[in-house]
């Protein structure tokens, strides 16, 4: 998958994408400023397939969907944290950004480790350290949502 970028607890949506950039919802434009107020070098450093690993309550604060859109736009394949703020949790699934809840992965993975994730099995592998972590599997309802291709498709199919 990719390399881990590691952050602390309570990463809020204002640092994921500051309000001054909310004049657009274009993923490429938002991606340029992703994590800017916390890690100014992130946008230049991140590579497609990389993973963000963080502490509890990731994505707290505003309901801006621009936050998961910016992360996905930056090429991030997955965000791993012990817990996510609830609006961010919904927004991530609704916009197709995979997220995994795993306390042991969040603790075990260091910045720069190579990480792989199997969403279906709920397994995260740390290739660098040779460790494997369990993640919370997606609830059945979320799986159905993802199977139908996100919320827009889900609503279309229910019409």
């Amino acid at each position: 998958m990719g390399i881990a970028h590691k952050y602390g607890e309570n990463v809020d949506t204002d640092v994921i994408i500051p309000a001054r950039y909310l004049v657009t919802s274009d993923p490429a434009e938002l991606a340029k400023h992703c994590m800017e107020d916390m890690d100014g070098a992130f946008a230049a450093r991140v590579r497609p397939g990389d993973v963000i690993v963080a502490g509890k309550n990731f994505g707290c604060g505003s309901s801006r969907e621009h936050a998961p859109i910016a992360i996905k736009g930056a090429g991030v394949a997955c965000v791993i944290a012990p817990t996510f703020a609830r609006i961010f949790y919904r927004n991530a699934f609704n916009t197709g950004l995979p997220i995994l809840e795993s306390e042991e992965a969040a603790a075990g993975i260091d910045a720069g480790d190579e990480v792989e994730a199997d969403f279906a099995a709920g397994v995260i592998r740390n290739v660098t350290k040779g460790e494997t972590y369990r993640a919370e599997p997606f609830p059945p309802f979320i799986s159905r949502l993802i199977e139908s291709g996100g919320l827009v498709e889900y609503v279309k199919s229910a019409k």
């Binding site: 969907e65 927004n91 609704n94």
Partner: peptide, 29 residues
């Protein structure tokens, strides 16, 4: 589609913030 939608709980309503896609689905359905 604003996190502070929870304000209306003061009136004894269930109110919660969501993202734009949830709002769009709510607007449609």
């Amino acid at each position: 589609a604003d996190s502070h939608t929870c304000t209306y709980g003061a009136l004894g309503a269930f109110a919660t913030g969501v993202g734009s896609t949830d709002m769009a689905a709510g607007m449609a359905s």
